[in-house]
Simulated assay, not measured.
Amino acid sequence: MKHIDLNPADYKILVVDDIATNVMLLKAVLGRAKYRIVTATGGHEALEQVEREKPDLVLLDIMMPDMDGYEVMRRLRADPRWEDLPVIFLTALNNTEDIVKGFKLGANDYVSKPFNHEELITRVAHHIFIAASKRTILEQSEQLQRTMRNRDRMYSVIAHDLRSPIGTLKMVFNMLTLNITEQMAGAENIEMLKMGNDITENTFMLLDNLLKWTKSQTGRMNTVFQEVDLAEVVLFAGKIADLVASAKGITVEYELPASAKVRCDVDMIKTIVRNLLSNAIKFSHEGGRVIVSMSETATHVLVSVRDFGKGIRQEDQSKVLDPDVHFTDYGTRNEEGSGLGLQLCSDLTRRNGGELTFVSKEGEGSTFTFSVAKSQAADQPSDRPVS
């Protein structure tokens, strides 16, 4: 919270007492401290002054003939507008029960009559500071909410105005890469075409990861469970990486069972598989291979993506899945990464009742494994088809 530099002249205090000499004395003491003062000589007038003047603090006498301070307190706290208004009781009562009654009604503090001037100023300054702090927190909260709304609008623009055209561009490059041969365009143009295809694939995945990560971190991502064949989902998601793999001459092999029934969020699983395959391809050497396999425990189905590439240095392995560390590395063809993909995979895996783990050895490759619970409770089951 930013530093609060209080200027007493910015704060208004309502003094309520039915004895004129007490009011004059309080005005003199508080006036010397530079506070602005308004007064009332009874309970009804005090409530009217609160409505009219909207003070920052009330010094309220308890014993008054028309309406005592307790009743004034009750009415103030019954009104949502004044439920946080600081109130300090002025009391000549020495009975502990009367003081406790004031606190139970919502008083913030009390000062006994006859009061010590320094004590009065100190208590007033303390509660003014608390009120100012609350006001500052409220202002900062409102500013934060505005910032978050602006951020959400920005992400909406990204989602609708960037994701769609980049997705279209990705499909165009995919088709050109599949249909144009070196004999048709020449080796140099084919290399440029592959480079363009890699860039659009990576950009689309980064954008997709960014949007999903933002939804996850802002609580706007829903996990929709359904009964599916995990082997089918993994195979379908993996095929999207085939073009990127072929550009580096990498073979993706699948060692999957005929069927593996789980209850999961299909879109999340596909995102996990795409990211793990993308990383495996990025860190594999030209002409290498990647193996996607599945196994089972009593409670989970495990999906592993193994590459035989550069691996991860021992000193970096603790950073890879640490949410507090932004870790990224270059691929075997100097492909850049955002460091976001694995963090997203870890989060999505937890949402599906599993865990993301890995083993790696520098120079020999890495194996990333995520698990999916065989039995998953869903709040809102969905019949959305696998696609």
Rank of each mutant, 00 (worst) to 15 (best):
I137M: 13
D84M: 12
A185E: 02
S164E: 15
M294R: 00
F225S: 05
T177S: 14
M64E: 05
E142Y: 05
M171S: 12
V290Y: 05
S338R: 02
L342K: 14
L243Q: 12
G337T: 09
M148K: 11
K270I: 01
V224A: 14
K215W: 01
D84I: 06
P55K: 02
L321E: 09
T39L: 03
S216M: 12
D242C: 06
T297S: 14
V359M: 06
D68Q: 04
L207S: 07
S387I: 13
S293R: 09
M148I: 12
L344E: 07
G288A: 13
P385H: 02
L93T: 10
P55H: 04
L105E: 05
A373R: 12
L193G: 02
S259Q: 14
D265V: 07
I4F: 00
D5S: 11
I99P: 02
S293P: 03
K194D: 13
S371E: 05
N150P: 00
T214I: 01
L340I: 15
G167I: 04
R263Y: 10
L138G: 03
M294W: 02
G331P: 11
T168N: 08
T297L: 05
V15W: 00
A28W: 03
L6Q: 01
D109Y: 00
L120S: 10
V320C: 07
E142Q: 14
R306K: 15
Q376E: 09
E336I: 14
R274A: 11
E45N: 01
R36L: 11
I13N: 02
D267S: 13
M73R: 01
V29E: 04
T223W: 11
A373H: 08
M268N: 10
D109W: 00
L348I: 10
N22T: 02
K282L: 12
H44T: 13
V124P: 01
A185G: 06
I4S: 04
K319Q: 12
T271N: 05
I4H: 09
Y11D: 08
I62T: 04
G42S: 13
E142I: 10
L14M: 03
L206D: 15
Y155F: 15
G288D: 14
L144P: 02
P65N: 07
R274Q: 13
R350M: 10
T147A: 13
D198P: 00
I37M: 07
E227R: 11
H160D: 13
R36S: 11
N202V: 03
L93H: 08
V262W: 09
L6C: 03
V23A: 02
D229I: 08
L342T: 03
V290E: 01
L57Q: 01
T367H: 03
